[in-house]
Amino acid sequence: MYYRSQYPRDLFAELDRLQREMQEAFDFSPSIRGLARGSFPAINVGGTPSSVDIYAFAPGLDPASIDVQLEKGTLTVAGERKAAEVPEKSTVHINERFGGAFRRVITLPDDVDSESIDAKYRDGLLHIAIQRKQEAQPRRIAIK
């Protein structure tokens, strides 16, 4: 499934991405959890010196039904999204949206503080911010 991206772009960008993914898959060692492109929800990860920020693009969910777990250096985002309702005697012309149970696992850097984690859900976007440990922060050492 890794040839299909969740939010496709134009053809050339797709070809470029495909080539990069082929390289990732064959030349280098891919991640043990696969090249999760095209799976739901799409995830962006970023970091600052003081935090790690994870963005999960998961529209149309009830925030209470999203299960976010932090365990042994991995973060799991799981839940279920119902497929669109199809009334009787109707025709489905296009069916691209994800429906069903989902689970994504992300490996976190070693220096995160599992006690200070903050998750927000807004506009269908789940933002999880995890602070890095105090002792891992860069600091200036005074010379006496």
Partner: peptide
């Protein structure tokens, strides 16, 4: 990006 869609037609 192209957002994924579902299109369903009834009477």
């Amino acid at each position: 990006m192209l957002p994924p869609v579902d299109v369903i037609e009834d009477t």
